[in-house]
Design a protein around this nucleic acid. Sequence first.
DNA 1: CAACTGACTGCTA
DNA 2: TTAGCAGCCAGTT
Length: 109
Amino acid sequence: MKETDNFFEKVYAVTRLVPFGRVTTYGAIATYLGAARSARMVGWAMNKAHNLEDVPAHRVVNRKGLLTGKHHFDGTNLMQQLLENEGIKVIENQIIDFDKVLWNPSAEL
DNA sequence: CAACTGACTGCTA
DNA sequence: TTAGCAGCCAGTT
């Protein structure tokens, strides 16, 4: 493939470092990587990452706490199911107490 | 070769 | 306050 996956590689690394029961946003990761305006690229990285079991893409949601990417998972509510499995409450694709489960790499790291 | 879409975000009306 | 629009990078058609 490509060796310049530094950006994507970092996305995978941060996503994998997300603590149990916590979630992060595309913007948070993008900003942490220095590409605040490239939040979409994070989503693109997740698209490829969803093939990698090592990358908990279900812990990555948009800034509203909405499970925008759940549609990309195998099942229809697989992403929501995984989040609930971690103790995160999700209703109608929206994370409850999103501010409490939000994990900021720039702040925590 | 050119244009559009896409797991988003932030600003302006 | 809520709603709408433009900007960004990369991949696909």
